[in-house]
């Protein structure tokens, strides 16, 4: 069993068996991250470039340390967001990176489809670290891993995704992944942030948070982008949190062992209350730990056999 494609551009393109392979491979990787000597030699002589056209601390650091734990050489390329529309073209930037001998690039960009564009224009392997509102496959994989680790299986769970579904690549990748396991997926948020025809993705959409979280196994809370209120998608953060902030009462409506996920960084008091963020159902801190294991698994599966 191996991954069928050269690149990891989206969960859309993975089979359930491939997802299982990645999650299974992440288990021994997590062991490596928890021992004293957090290093294995398997990717010695391989090089990873993280190329982020959008700010990120967590995902970039996670890729970097994942590569280092596997003994790959890792270089972070800073691309100021302001230079996207001027300066060097994306094709030229990527070609330059390729010519320095990198084997794989973890690529983030604010525009959907950019990772596909990069993949088409390079022989390097490409891991999509988030493209616009399209996909964030490694986040979804770490979410699936975290859920599976606690629940034992992903099959037929009830999962609610809360917030700005319209602009969320995390929501999309989670939906594409969870539907493969027969999960009942609910999305909930203000009508202006629910994308058109979302139900055709295999989800139910709700406007009422209380209804949406009733009896669910997992609540995945999206970060609300504060900029969105300026373009009139919702009136204020205040009103947003009145309607859609997950508080302990919502957790009570869900199953007793409900898991609370959030991709971070959190806006406490906006989309999630501190009691919930720090509560016993919260997996938010473990998600970060699992993120490293998932990225190690991917790097190994994509580079280990070549």
């Amino acid at each position: 069993m191996e991954l069928a494609k050269k690149d990891l551009l989206g969960i859309k393109e993975l089979s359930k068996e491939e997802i299982d392979l990645i999650l299974d491979t992440a288990i021994p990787m997590k062991d490596v991250t928890t021992r004293d000597i957090k290093k294995v030699p398997t990717l010695r002589g391989k090089a990873l470039a993280t190329v982020f056209y959008e700010n990120s601390t967590r995902t970039r650091t996670s890729f970097e340390i994942a590569g280092k734990y596997l003994s790959a050489d890792v270089v972070n390329l800073n691309v100021p967001t302001s230079s996207v529309q001027k300066g060097e073209s994306l094709r030229d930037t990527i070609k330059n990176i390729e010519m320095m001998g990198f084997d794989v690039v973890a690529f983030r960009h604010s525009m959907s489809g950019s990772a596909h564009y990069v993949a088409k224009n390079t022989d390097m392997k490409v891991i999509n670290a988030g493209d616009g509102a399209n996909e964030h496959p490694t986040q979804a994989l770490l979410d699936l891993y975290s859920i599976r680790e606690k629940k034992g299986s992903l099959e037929n769970l009830k999962v609610t995704i809360v917030g700005d579904i319209l602009h969320s690549r995390v929501a999309r990748s989670n939906i594409y992944g969870l539907t493969k396991y027969g999960c009942e997926i609910r999305v909930v948020g203000p009508a202006t942030l629910i994308p058109p025809e979302v139900e055709r993705l295999g989800v139910k959409s709700y406007y009422s948070l209380s209804e949406a979280v009733r009896d669910v196994d997992v609540i995945n809370i999206l970060r609300i982008q504060k900029e969105r209120q300026n373009v009139g998608l919702f009136p204020s953060l205040d009103e947003y949190s009145d309607l859609y902030m997950i508080s302990p009462e919502h957790v009570k409506l869900a199953k007793d062992d409900v898991l609370i996920l959030h991709p971070g960084p959190m806006n406490r008091g906006v989309e999630i209350s501190s009691e919930v963020a720090d509560g016993i159902n919260s997996l938010i801190v473990e998600q970060v730990q699992n993120g490293v294991a998932i990225r190690m698994a991917l790097l190994f599966l994509m580079l280990g056999g070549i």
Binding site: M1, E2, D24, T25, P28, D31, A297, L301, G304, G305
Partner: peptide, 9 residues
Amino acid sequence: GPNPQVHRT
């Protein structure tokens, strides 16, 4: 050949 499956130690 194809990637060997990694298992736990």
